[in-house]
């Protein structure tokens, strides 16, 4: 994987990284965190493709980033703030037309247990 990227970029020296392996149990954990059902028959396939992607991103480990501040936004801008004035009308009917299940103005979901 890395060698392919390196070749594409003419970058032949090999990075010293141990490849991250993702197994079935990792995928099950991630699928639970992300609330996505992954069918039993495809778990191994998904694990393999995610291992491949992680091998690509593991290239980052070779970069020297000592003292570099993380950059969350491309521009060094700061946040504008909004005046505290009501600007939104009640549009419940427009929005609830889109709801898979609603009743008495409420969105319905299977019983919430705390």
């Amino acid at each position: 994987m890395m060698t392919r990227l390196n070749r594409l970029l003419g970058n032949e020296e090999k990075a010293q990284i141990s490849e991250t392996q993702v197994d079935r149990s990792d995928i099950e954990k991630l699928a639970e965190l992300a609330r996505i059902e992954i069918s039993e028959s495809t778990v191994d396939e998904v694990a393999k493709s995610i291992t491949d992607v992680l091998a690509l991103v593991d290239q980052l480990q070779a970069a020297d980033t000592d003292g570099i501040a993380p950059m969350a936004h491309p521009l060094d801008a700061t946040q504008r703030l909004r005046v505290d004035r009501v600007s939104e009308d009640n549009r419940r009917d427009d929005f609830q037309k889109l709801a898979p299940a609603a009743e008495q103005g409420l969105y319905l979901v299977p019983k919430v247990i705390e």
């Binding site: 991630l30 996505i36 992954i38 995610i50 992680l54 991103v57 970069a63 980033t65 570099i68 993380p70």
Partner: peptide, 29 residues
Amino acid sequence: KRRILVGAYALSAGYYDAYYRKAQQVRRL
């Protein structure tokens, strides 16, 4: 699905610094 799972992985406990924070540093470079 693949990208959501990769993203969840990169942000999950114990991996944040190695992946997400590192990527943001590289982004600055």
